[in-house]
Computed example of a mutant assay.
Amino acid sequence: MADETDNIEDRESSDELYERFVFNADKGQEPYRIDKFLMNRIDGATRNKLQQAINSGLVLVNGKEVKQNYKIKAFDQIIVYSDLTPESTDIVPENIPLNIHYEDDDVIIVNKPAGMVVHPGSGNYTGTLLNGIAYYLQQKNPSINEEALPRFGLVHRIDKNTSGLLVLAKTDKAMRLLAKQFYDHTVKREYIALVWGDLVEDEGTIIAHVGRNLRFRKLFEAYPEGDHGKEAITHYNVLERFNYVTLVRCVLETGRTHQIRVHMKHIGHPLFADDFYGGDKIVKGTIFSKYKQFVDNCFAICSRQALHAKTLGFIHPSTGEEINFETELPDDMHQVIEKWRGYVKTLKKE
């Protein structure tokens, strides 16, 4: 039996694209090839994918990497870092402009624009970040193995309409070490968000499980009693107040799908312009013609949830040193924040 198990629904509810499974062989375990041992314990696992994971160092026995022909013995502990990205046939390299924030032999840091999907999936088979990465890597190294292109080094994702920093691994070693850091929640991730309302406290922590809405499958919901979904923790602090909206910094302790959006809605402060979670209408403020026109103008400038992955930090896979990256707010969020600053100044004059 696995010490850690998750149903498929909950496994999908994560921006961290690797999950960890732990298995303990009992005292009566007979020698058994590791790939066959795991096929009997992980739903949907194929021998080919398990062998790839073993070769990539994503399977550890008693804390150490093993070869495909390793045979499980009594009391062995097996840890598997499992790739949760959706299966796709081929990722077609496409000449898509990418904002490469940083690159070395191990990692690529991309500043993703709002509106770009991270990886191909239902309804989005082209035009994704990975299509662009595949083209970029082939241009740098035309002999790159086609089989290496699908989901190349992707260990986490951010929403289509969220902008900001994302890391991809360029080697198996980097992928394994980054996957472990994301799973262990040691990666530093800070987001800037514009939310509706004037938060009572200058800082706080939101603790509520995040899982799929039981009726509407595309939506996620906060479950403070922990009766559904997966544990999610978001720390926030107020950066600036604009009467009816507030600029906040959110620090993720976990990485669930839509986590910040769901958590801020849960405490009554949905993200500005978030059409999934009620932020695309006037939530705070008296609705009169001039104010409504002002907010509509803001929606026209920033027509997506006002959320930006500003800071990303982790331990470098080769040097072992902590590295941190930051990026400026995109133009749409910057313009909207400036408009709210101006609006507040106008109110003070009145």
Rank of each mutant, 00 (worst) to 15 (best):
S318Q: 13
H258T: 02
K292N: 15
R241E: 01
G278Q: 05
G320W: 05
D296Q: 14
H266S: 14
G320L: 07
A309E: 07
R256G: 06
Q293D: 11
F288Q: 05
L247Y: 02
E253V: 00
I260R: 09
I267M: 09
V248A: 03
C298M: 03
G313Q: 13
S303V: 03
Y277E: 10
E326G: 01
A300F: 02
Q335P: 04
I315R: 14
T327N: 12
I301Y: 04
L312F: 07
G278E: 12
D275L: 01
G278R: 02
V251K: 15
K284C: 13
L271C: 04
N324F: 13
K284V: 13
T319C: 12
I282G: 00
G279L: 03
F294N: 10
V262Y: 10
K230M: 15
L239Q: 14
N297T: 05
A232H: 06
M333H: 09
F242Q: 02
A309D: 09
G229D: 14
C298A: 04
H308W: 13
F294S: 07
Y291K: 03
S318W: 06
R256E: 11
V295L: 11
V251N: 15
Q259H: 03
T257H: 00
E321A: 06
M333G: 05
N324G: 01
D280H: 12
I301T: 12
L307E: 09
I260M: 06
Y236M: 05
T327G: 13
T311W: 07
T234E: 07
A309R: 13
Q259K: 04
Y244F: 11
T246K: 05
A306T: 13
I301F: 05
E328A: 13
H308D: 07
F276Q: 14
F272V: 07
P317D: 01
P330Y: 14
N243R: 11
G229E: 15
K284G: 01
G255Q: 08
I301P: 11
V262R: 08
K310M: 14
K265N: 13
P317Q: 07
H235W: 08
G255K: 04
D296A: 10
S318F: 09
G278D: 12
C302V: 00
T254H: 00
H334T: 15
L252R: 09
K290V: 02
Q305A: 08
L307R: 10
C298T: 00
L329W: 10
M264K: 01
H266I: 11
R249H: 01
C250K: 09
I233C: 12
F325A: 06
L271Q: 02
V262P: 10
I282Y: 01
Q293W: 02
P270M: 02
M333E: 09
N243A: 01
I301N: 10
L312P: 15
V238H: 05
L247I: 00
L239W: 06
H334P: 00
C302R: 03
T311G: 09
S318I: 07
K292L: 11
A300E: 12
Y291P: 01
P317F: 03
I315H: 11
A306R: 02
I287Y: 08
H235N: 14
D275E: 08
M264T: 09
I267S: 07
N243H: 09
F325P: 14
F294R: 08
F288M: 02
I267L: 11
H263F: 03
G313E: 11
R256V: 00
G279F: 04
R304F: 11
L247S: 04
T257C: 00
T234N: 08
